[in-house]
Design a protein around this nucleic acid. Structure first.
Lengths: 211, 211
DNA sequence: GTCTATAAGAGGATAGAC
DNA sequence: GTCTATCCTCTTATAGAC
């Protein structure tokens, strides 16, 4: 049993290395431009060996997305333990985390339109399950934040959820980073502000309010 | 000269039909999934004939983007004639127009990462010229809106400009439309609100302000 | 300038030896 | 399970007749 367990550990380490490479390439070039040859070369194994671990290119991407959702769920559950934070604070923290991940080049992005990939993901139970868990938790916070008046109660929670998800693959941070004149933290602050406070900015008062 | 002019007109009409098809396919599936065969089939001519009009797939996409920018510039210049509107109103009108275009399936979207395509665009004088004209005009309005306090003066104008551009290819409207329970106008209003007023929503007052 | 036919190559996936 | 070598399909692009 020790030998079997060891073998399994080796397997896991190798598959983790594969998912690492896929994650990097998805973040860098996206699904359509990522080639299986690149993944194999990046990991340092033959392409045929890759296919012993994952059945298809879509399965590779799905594995990367599942790991992303696992990490997201871990972060979300960690936030839930902070008693002092409001629901709004938590939503903002999660969004900040996603933006930081993206700027670090570790956010795998999928095309919103590739049908073969969507089919694979919609058939992936682990993926759907995790996505639902994350969405449920965020959904709770959204309702709480709306009740507290921190998030616009006129918006359907769905709209808020999608908007937060969309910030994770927003092109703005990458463009600003490509410009080269701002640091990551500064970029994150600005994008976070435009997301929650809008282009109008935080705390506006009616004309003539005096401060 | 009349015969030549007539021939040129026929040419223009045909090329317009090609760009129409490209525009539709780019909006529908994106650059990577669009094939030249599809474009040819959609227009109803042979693929080889396409290549008599445009030198490459990238050139096709570039033509669609140039036409988009021409239309954008036309809309922007039309807004400039509305004397009653503030700079902020105009920015909001342009963003609304882009969102409506997207929901109508007429917004060609490019991958933010395809290098061959970016190279072609960056070498396309007409494209760069139009992009600069649009950006200059929007940039003016952004500065004015910031001076008027309608847009957060703490944000670099660059950030505001990129954010507005990014709304034109935001995945949120398409997701909401796919859900099927909301009309286009409703979706546009919500996304526009999250863009300018943020998830917090319009007009927040300090606690205890009374209304 | 339009067509049919085909070149040329990339990229996903597999065969079969070890 | 890893490798080398290969298959096969899809897609961009072009040749050459009309």
């Amino acid at each position: 049993m020790a030998r079997l367990s060891f073998r399994e550990q080796v397997l896991r380490v190798r598959e983790d290395a594969i998912v690492d490479a896929v994650n990097r390439l998805l973040a860098d070039k996206g699904f359509d431009l990522m080639t299986v040859d690149e993944v194999a070369a990046d990991v340092g194994i033959a392409k045929a060996s890759l296919y012993k671990h994952f059945a298809s290119k879509e399965a590779l991407a799905a594995a990367a997305m599942v790991r992303l959702l696992q990490r997201t769920l871990a972060f979300v559950e960690q936030q839930a333990t902070h008693a002092g934070a409001s629901a709004y604070d938590r939503l903002r923290a999660v969004t900040r985390w996603a933006l930081q991940l993206q700027l670090a080049g570790e956010m795998p992005t999928l095309p919103s339109q590739n049908s073969s990939l969507r089919a694979e993901l919609m058939a992936n139970k682990a993926y759907l399950d995790l996505l639902m868990q994350v969405s449920d938790k965020l959904g709770e916070w959204i309702l709480q934040a709306q009740a507290a008046g921190d998030i616009d109660p006129a918006l359907p929670p769905e709209v808020v959820l999608y908007t937060i998800y969309a910030r994770g693959c927003d092109p703005v941070p990458a463009f600003l980073k490509a410009g080269g004149q701002y640091g990551d933290d500064q970029i994150v602050d600005w994008v976070l502000s435009t997301c929650f406070d809008g282009l109008r900015g935080p705390v506006r008062r009616p004309a003539g309010a005096g401060n």
